[in-house]
Amino acid sequence: MLSRVADSLYWMSRYFERANHCARVLEANHNLMLNPSKLSTEERWQRIMASLGIAPAAGGIDPQSAMVKLTSDAGFESSIAFCIAVSRENAGQVREQISSEMWEGLNSLYHKVTKASANLEADTDPMRLVVAVREGSYQFHGITDATMNHGEGWQFIQLGKYMERSCALPVLLDAYFSRAGEADTLDWVGLLASCAAFESYCKVYTAELRPDSVAEFLLLNPEFPYSVCYAVERMSAAIAAISQTSFTKASVRIERIAGRLRASLAYAQIAEIMIGGVHRCLNDVIEQCESLHAAVHMVYIDYPIQSALEA
């Protein structure tokens, strides 16, 4: 597979996941913000921003404009509209590699988002856009799995999706656990809903919401798609599959980083993590994901030509 193509598939997938994540967080919080809480609206918006990894704005946050900015401001790099546009742009670069159904799905979602962004009138409109993205994303994942060869290209798509998730979930968790002391039940509901995890959580722990159970579920549950452990597991699987089809000597190094990260979560216990501090654990995951990203880029995408000729 062409390196440029692999790169585009990876970023198509990452940005798509990013839009999706943003949509989930906004949808979950939107519903909860209608309830009164100890935190002010301003503080809650700050937490939303933090949970999406967005630096706090200097002049404070106006709820209505924040919503518009995060959903439909195509000039703002964390907005849904921006992420969908970049995802589609990358897909457009590799249209012959993805299935026509995938392109049509992504393309029509893009047009839906662009059109909705240009016509925001009622204050319910941004939420409509968010819901469209959530539905569109489940559809896109289904189409991708059903219509594309599960070969190397598909593996790069998986890698992008789970890399993004492995980076985004720790940021989200950190925003809640760094202020775990002041959080009430509704806040934990909000966190779980941000990961589409409420129902799944209840099936494991019942509706009793305890911070360490929430942390255990979202960090270490190996079966839930929006847990860190699951995302890292899938990411490692994609990396292993890629190095099988495109083996180079340097692949070994990537597999080692991935394996270490995987093991650190697979064999961890929540009690230990709570003692050492959730923040440290989350930070560790993010750092290892970053070095994994850099290694993949160096080995498969942007390698020096001279070394490739000698091989």
């Binding site: 597979m1 062409l2 390196s3 495109s246 000729l309 091989a311």
Partner: peptide, 15 residues
């Protein structure tokens, strides 16, 4: 890329 009058494409498994 062209090397020694031979044309290669850059792929994930090398040239």
């Amino acid at each position: 890329v062209v090397h020694d009058n031979t044309v290669y494409m850059r792929t994930t498994s090398g040239l």
